[in-house]
Every structure is written in structure tokens, then in C-alpha cells.
Design a protein around this nucleic acid. Structure first.
Lengths: 405, 405
DNA sequence: GTTAGCAGTCGCACCTCTTGAGTGCTAATT
DNA sequence: AATTAGCACTCAAGAGGTGCGACTGCTAAC
């Protein structure tokens, strides 16, 4: 699952080819069930046997619909995509595609619009991935150019740049709940009997937890406690601390005063792990209103309220098994707003997944562009200088930057 | 500016009376200029000389318009608010009020809608503040019932409860940039040569800043540094550290190795202060779509994009001089979305202002309710047990809670 | 298998007409 | 002098009708 960083020319290839490879995995694994559920109603085999011309026409319909958002007529297809055949021929094919469940007509004398199933096939098979424009690459690069001091900062930047480039709403889920190795732990006395617990892990600094100190402990006591806590926690994984009671005898023997402290910290760890402690960032919520299918207030409302349910968003984005890209179209996920799709990708640095980033937009969103953007961001971050991130890295290798000319 | 916590019965009085008192201040101070700018065009004196009946009718129009959102007819007023006079009489009065600039007609055969000026008078003078319902009080109380561990948590809760109760969008600005007294400072070694700076002030724990340690410093060195940093910073106010160069000779004499460290921390403090480091939380953005005046997509879009400009929101909310309540109506503030008003209040605990909380809703929002909610939240927080907050308090007094029966 | 031609469907923009909820004005009433 | 009934007037909004045009499906010829 490690992303290579080839030269840009080769990278173009890699986008397409990796994506294809993942699609193969997808179709042989659990994902088939998830994604192809609807297809089993009628013949999935058909999909494989569609004539080349039908595929071409279907692709044309989807491309056109993505661009213009309006029913596509047989004439449209002929004039722009297939000038060699007559509209009548195309009409026959369209009619066949409709009975196969790929197209539908809002009313009898209108053009065709692609069904959810058509979009599925399009994303899996038909669409062509194009390289990002130089301007886009420059914009992305400029976001990750300087020293990045925290995963949170990266997360925010990712959300912002995605939304800026794609013109859709972006969602990034920072998952603090991964089972991380504890590198350092420190209790810091605050005012009163409160204290701040700072836990440094292999991927992140967790510093938002507050506990109550044992009565009557003084500065020296805290120092001793810190030494002892380091001995207890450092080098272990967070998952090892599920049960409070276990090492209690040992503690009683050593420093009976720290029982409560220990319990509290285990509790903090458990809370971080269990509750997941996922932070969800969304940017560009209002962008959906740019698209005509959301001029309807009820739809807009549905969109915005669904975006407010952070847990659902987190679920959708993290429910990706171990694919790097995931595309959910329309009703394939109940938590998606009506008429929306989600494209999401993993964001990892040094093989550690830091977050999942995604785009939520209308079903007819520009998948090519969106995947291109996500791919480039993924590649950049995977190659970022690790020590800029409080994460232990092997070779401090400077991020490769490409100027426009 | 300290809020008293009287018994609930008396509290009702206090809401109204304090608000009136502040309005008096408002009208004698700078605020007159700000708020009454529009009035000086035509005769402001008129406002004072409106007959009692005109005031009654104007109030009726605004009340009705707030409730139904539609032009108010003379008949409406008679049937609901002034049954003793005939519609014709009311029509005469309405006509007079219109020529005074308080009312307007969408078209000649429709009822009247209040102008911005009418809302101003309404808020300043006409509306009656009613006590919150018991259910509402209970809901608010339940939000601040348990131990609150950070200002951030409070801020989020405030945003949420406001939006829940009022059904408008809430905005809370947490201002970390206030000139706070430094109570404690600590540098915490992370991985690599990075370190976390934790600054405990009288109101908040600032723990999101990362610096680079001097080369070759070891654990003992950090401990010495921490002792020395405490000596340098503790007890002073953040504003005292504006210039890096000043105490440099002194440092060179004492511990020349800490020059860089000192500079970095001063820089952190300066950044916190200058850049303001205001955190802005918004909740219930989509609620505006519940109101018919925002079924128009362009308006909705305007609303949502204005809400994305965090700095502007922060400016609007903090630009309140030292009033506890501020109401900005329609175009009185350029940064407000079209057709919106803002009601904001200070949130303080123990005379320290922690945040400004506000509601952004349509101009015809239910000011009475909104002010009631903000007032109650303010009172509750002002009386919260301070040490639950990492803030030094005098008497640990338990939050008074009132059951429904 | 492809295509030209034609009949048929239906959304949409445009028009007119009617209705009714308002007003302002005037003259009578208190 | 203030109030009110009555009436003429205005205008938004909805209902119904019409024509246009953008499509399709079908059929018969190529």
C-alpha cells in the first residue's frame, strides 16, 4: 500500500493503472457485494457483454450529463461524440441501454439521463482519467510547501485545497483513534488540582485531555509520577490498555498513591480509542448551491443537515476497507444526501493513515477531476518530509516541487 | 459589569431592567452614531413624538410580521391587536407611519412590512422581554450541569444550545487574544527537535504551539529552561511581550543558550495576541432554510458564504464596545448576510470575557426569545463553579439548579 | 444493420381572465 | 376634530388555454 513517487510523466500512468488495479481488487472482494448489490436484480452478466458502441454511447451520455446536467438527446450525442452514425441509430441503442437499466427518461419526449447504475459502470470502467492541469498542481503544491506543524493543520489544508480545486464540498476525517504506539507521556500541572495529559504517539500529539490530580501531590510528586508513567506506558500500544484493573496489584506494591492517576489515564486512552475521537472538517458547504439540481430548497436542506452529522460522515469516509480510493454513488450509502456521490481517499504519511479525505457532490460530479486531485494530494503527502510532522522519519527528503515552466 | 444571580423571580425583572439600562447607555454613547446613522436623514425627533397609539400599532405590525413573515393588513391589526378601532383608522395611522419611514408596501394593494428602522425602534424601545419557558431553562441548565473541562467545550456547548433553542444559526467567537496573565509556562519535548509550548493563563490553557528546540539540548537542559522560563514569564501579562530584543542583554548574561528559545516563545505569544487567534464556531447553518425568505437560492448562498468568512464573523461579534448585548439589524453591518440580523452577547466567567455568542437570523427573528436565551446562558455561566474551569475562583459555589416542579 | 421520415408526446413559455385581498379617498357620523 | 363606512381602484397570484419545439418511437425504405 505504499505509494511510489515517480517522475510526473510516469505518475500520469500510475494514476490510471493503480486505479484500475484497485478496481480489480474491488470486484473480487467484499466490495463486489457492496457495490453491485443493485446489479444482481437483473443480469450483471449483461454489463460485460455490452457492445463497444453501446459503451461508447453510454459514456457519451454520462460525459454530457456531467457537463451540462440536462437530459441528453440522440442528436446531442451524434453532433458531439459520434458523428458517423445517425440519430436514429443512436436512438435504438439508447432504447436498449434504457431497458438494461442504465438510462431513464424524465418524460417521454425528453432526452435520457444516466441512472445510478450507469454512473457505477462509468466510474468503474468507462471514464478516462486525465492528468491534472499544471495550474492545479501548482495550487496543491503551494498548500504543502511550508513547514507543517500538526496533523490538524494538514487536515485543514487538505479540506481547503480539495474544495477550492473541485468546487465541491470537501470532508476530511482525522482519525485519532488508530492504535498508536505511545512514545511519550507527560502530566502537566495546571491551576487548582487539574492537570493536562499530553500523550505523544507515533503519529500525533494528543493534548486535549484534562484529569484531576490526587489530593496533596506536589511538584516533586508529579515528577516522580511522570517518570513512573513513562515506564508504564511508553513503547506500548494504546490497545493494550483496555482494562483498568489488571496491573493494579503491581501498582499497589510500587506507588500506591498513583492508583487513581493511572486509572484516569487509562480512562483517557480508552476514551480516545473507543469514542474514536474522530475530528471531521468540512469546507465549502455552500458550493452545492452552485449546481442547478440543488436549487430546490428541500434538497439543499437535506444536503446541509446530512453534512452536520459528523459521525455519519466519519462512518462513510472510513468505511473503505483498505482501498485507497472509494466511490459511493447516490443511494449506495444511506447517509449520503439525496442525489449525491462521495469520492474518498486515504491520506497517509509514511504508511500511517492520518485521515480520510473526500468530496461530496452531485451524482453527476466530475469524477475524473476529483480523483485526480485526491490522487495528487495523496502522493504529495506520502512523500512529505516526515520530521516536519513530529513523526519519526527515515530519510529527510525534500518534497519535490515542479515549477510551471 | 458583574452579573448578579438573584432568585429566578427577581431575575425576570433584571433581564428587562438591565437591558433598558444598557439601552440608555447605548443612546448616549457612540452607539447612537452607529445605530442611528440612518435616522438622521429625516427627522429623528419624530421618533420621540410618535403618539402612543402609533407605537402600539407599529409594535403590532412588527410582532405580526415576526410571527408570520407576511405583509400585515389593517384588518389583521384590528382583529388581533386593537379591536377597539376600525380598520380605516388604523389605515390612516399606517399611512402616517409609512411616511415616517417605519413601514413599506411591497405593492399598493398589499399590507405593510416593517422597515429596518422599525425593527431598530422595536428592539430599542417597543418589544417586551418575556421570561423563558421552564422547558427552555431546563434545557439550558442541562447543558452546563456537569463538569466543564475547557473553554472550548463551553464554547461548543453554548453554540449548540443557542441554535437548538432559537432555531437560528448560532455563532460563538472564542477570543484567546485577550490580554491574559500568564500563570504557568512549560516546554514539553516531543519527537525530533520539536517541542510543545503549554501556556496556562488566567482564563485558558494554550497548548497548540510547537517550536524547535535548540540543538543539543537534553532533558536536564529542558528542565533548567523550564525553571528559567517560568521566572521570565509567569505573573506577567501577554501584552508585555511585544518586543523580542528588549531583555536580550539580560539573557545573554544569564543563559546564552536560551536566546533562541526565548525568542520563539515571545513569537508564539505575539502570534496568539496579534493574529487574535479567535476560534469561531457556528452551529445550525442550515436552519436559515426553514424561513420562507430564504427559499431564494441566491439569498441562501449569500448567507452561507458570509458564514464561511470567520474573520468577518469575529469582527461583528467582538465589535460590541462594552455592552453585554448588541443587536445589529440588516444593513447596519456590511458583513451580515442580506436580510439578516445579529444579536450577540458577552459570555464571561468571573469578570473575564471568554467569548462572544450570537445568533444570526432573518431580520424578522424572534428577538425576545433570542435575548432571553442569551441572557440566561450568560447568567448561568457567570455563576458557574469556577474551578471546574481551570480558572482560579473565590468561592466554590455550586451551580444553582431549578427543577421543573 | 442503418437511416430518413413522420406521427405523437409532453414540458414550457406565454397569454388572458378572474378572483380577492388590500389600499386610499371621500363623505357621513360621532 | 377624530373616526368610520363605503366605494373605487390596484395588483399579485392562480387557473385555464394555446402554440411551440424538443424529443422520442415506429415504420418502411435503403
Amino acid at each position: 500500500m505504499h505509494r511510489a513517487m515517480p517522475s510526473r510523466g510516469a505518475a500520469k500512468e500510475s494514476v490510471a493503472s493503480r486505479f484500475r488495479r484497485e478496481l480489480l481488487q474491488r470486484c473480487s472482494g467484499w466490495r463486489t457485494e457492496r457495490y453491485c448489490a443493485k446489479w444482481s436484480d437483473d443480469s450483471y452478466g449483461d454489463t460485460m457483454n455490452i457492445s463497444e458502441r453501446k459503451r461508447k454511447i453510454l459514456k457519451a451520455v454520462v460525459d454530457d450529463y456531467i457537463e451540462r446536467g440536462q437530459p441528453v438527446s440522440s442528436k446531442d450525442i451524434c453532433s458531439t461524440y459520434l458523428p458517423d452514425v445517425s440519430p436514429a441509430t443512436v436512438r435504438n441503442e439508447l432504447s436498449a441501454l434504457e431497458s438494461m437499466g442504465f438510462l431513464s427518461q424524465p418524460h417521454v419526449s425528453s432526452g435520457r439521463i444516466p441512472t445510478q447504475r450507469a454512473f457505477r459502470l462509468y466510474v468503474d470502467d468507462l471514464m478516462e482519467l486525465k492528468p491534472l492541469s499544471d495550474t492545479d498542481i501548482q495550487i496543491i503544491d503551494s498548500y504543502f510547501d511550508h513547514k507543517l506543524t500538526s496533523v490538524e493543520e494538514i487536515t485543514r489544508s487538505v479540506a481547503q485545497v480539495i474544495s477550492e480545486l473541485t468546487n465541491y464540498t470537501s470532508v476530511v476525517v482525522k482519525e485519532n483513534g488508530a492504535d498508536m504506539k505511545i512514545e511519550k507521556i507527560k502530566v502537566l500541572e495546571l491551576l487548582g488540582d487539574n492537570a493536562l495529559v499530553v500523550i505523544v504517539t507515533s503519529g500525533e500529539v494528543l493534548k486535549d485531555n484534562i484529569i484531576t490530580l490526587p489530593k496533596g501531590i506536589d511538584e516533586d510528586g508529579i515528577e516522580t509520577a511522570n517518570k513512573w508513567l513513562n515506564k508504564m506506558f511508553v513503547g506500548k500500544y494504546m490497545s493494550e490498555f483496555t482494562d483498568v484493573s489488571e496491573p493494579m496489584e503491581q501498582i499497589t506494591a510500587e506507588f500506591s498513591g498513583f492508583r487513581d492517576l493511572y486509572a484516569q489515564i487509562v480512562d483517557v486512552i480508552r476514551k480516545i480509542k473507543q469514542h474514536g475521537d474522530k475530528d471531521v472538517y468540512t469546507t465549502g458547504r455552500s458550493k452545492i448551491l452552485d449546481y442547478p439540481e440543488y436549487t430546490d430548497v428541500d434538497r439543499a436542506k437535506d444536503f446541509l443537515t446530512k453534512l452536520d452529522r459528523k459521525e455519519d460522515l466519519a462512518d462513510m469516509l472510513t468505511d473503505t476497507n483498505d482501498l485507497e480510493f472509494t466511490v459511493k454513488i447516490g443511494q449506495e450509502d444511506d447517509n449520503l444526501p439525496v442525489g449525491c456521490s462521495l469520492v474518498s481517499a486515504k491520506i497517509s504519511i509514511n504508511d500511517t493513515t492520518l485521515a480520510n479525505a473526500g468530496v461530496i457532490g452531485p451524482v453527476r460530479m466530475d469524477y475524473t477531476k476529483v480523483i485526480g486531485v485526491l490522487e495528487h494530494i495523496g502522493t504529495i503527502l506520502d512523500n512529505i518530509k516526515a520530521d516536519a510532522l513530529l513523526i519519526e522519519g527515515d530519510t529527510p527528503k525534500k518534497l519535490k516541487k515542479k515549477k510551471g515552466h
